[in-house]
């Protein structure tokens, strides 16, 4: 029974980390309907930044977030401004394939550049948080994962609040529903998209900082996390930020229990099988309201 609870806790907490990564994508894919195929590789980039920063300066991983987050914010802003906005303006469809292709190109560039610059060996860093855990009733709760979980909750809540209440957030949702009409209503679509993408990238930066005590990074990190985040966002449903949190937790739990009951490989197969099932049965995600 203790093992069961341990698996439950591990799954939940790992799910929190996944959610952190997925929240960023749920903004770009869910709200803006722009599909960022390079999500995993951008996370890899953030993780490299965090790990090198901590290696170089010896700062606390939570402090590294304050550096990596803003840097990623700026990168996201310019990626949207110079790479994606020109495509969005040209495209007629709501989910332009050209964006998918461009971000796939970005993914290719980032992962190969990482291999070139840092070789395919993995990099890791020992921080004050590494390996720390809280011991409650013979169960171990990993401290860095717990922090990541709490931050993921905070991020989800904050972004949801931003989308629902803030003037900018509402403008963003309006733009996602109908670009042209929103523009006619006087909204600066281009700037809005840049901001939203920047926030999405910043979430990745935060995730990178949070993951630095737990994960080693290598050029294949992008591939490992990339498709997983897509799975999570689709599970949660497009346009739903809380859905990303739910999707993250589901994937975390499936991996944890799958690994505990069978093997981690089976767990991966189950994750993808669930993903395919959700795509077919409820393509708009578990938390979606609309059907189209």
């Amino acid at each position: 029974m203790a093992i069961f609870f341990q698996a439950l806790i591990d799954g939940l907490l790992t799910g929190g980390i996944y959610a952190c990564v997925a929240v960023g994508l749920s903004l770009s894919f869910g709200v803006m309907r722009l599909f960022n195929w390079a999500q995993g590789d951008l996370l890899m980039m953030a993780l490299y930044m965090a790990i090198f920063l901590i290696q170089g300066t010896g700062i606390h991983p939570l402090v590294s977030i304050l550096v990596v987050g803003p840097v990623m914010f700026v990168i996201g802003f310019f990626v949207q401004k110079f790479l994606l906005n020109p495509l969005v303006i040209r495209a007629k469809e709501r989910e332009p394939l050209s964006v998918l292709l461009t971000t796939a190109g970005m993914s290719f560039v980032l992962s190969n550049l990482a291999t070139f610059l840092f070789t395919s060996n993995s990099q890791s860093v020992t921080t004050p948080l590494t390996g720390r855990s809280i011991n409650i009733a013979s169960m171990f709760i990993s401290t860095p994962k717990l922090i990541a979980f709490v931050v993921a909750l905070g991020l989800t809540f904050g972004i949801q609040l931003f989308l629902q209440k803030a003037e900018w957030g509402r403008a963003l949702r309006a733009t996602s529903q109908d670009r042209e009409v929103a523009q006619l209503m006087g909204m600066n679509n281009k700037l809005l998209y840049c901001l939203a993408q920047a926030i999405g990238f910043a979430c990745l930066g935060v995730a990178g900082g949070l993951m630095s005590p737990i994960y080693a990074v290598s050029p294949s990190t992008g591939a490992t996390f990339g498709f997983k985040t897509l799975t999570i966002v689709v599970l949660g449903g497009k346009g739903s930020v809380p859905g990303a949190l739910l999707g993250g937790i589901i994937v975390g739990l499936v991996e944890s229990f799958g690994g505990f009951l069978f093997s981690s490989l089976y767990a991966q197969i189950i994750v993808f099988a669930i993903f395919a099932l959700v795509l077919f049965l409820k393509p708009n995600g578990l938390l979606s309201k609309d059907r189209g």
Partner: peptide, 28 residues
């Protein structure tokens, strides 16, 4: 058959999901 019910990006994703499933089966 089920994939074609999906459009655009979702269709791409579904095909990649099957690639991963088969790959993990062979790997595992």
């Amino acid at each position: 058959k089920p994939c074609f019910k999906l459009r655009g990006t979702y269709f791409s994703l579904a095909t990649v999901a099957f690639l991963h499933i088969v790959r993990y089966i062979i790997l595992g």
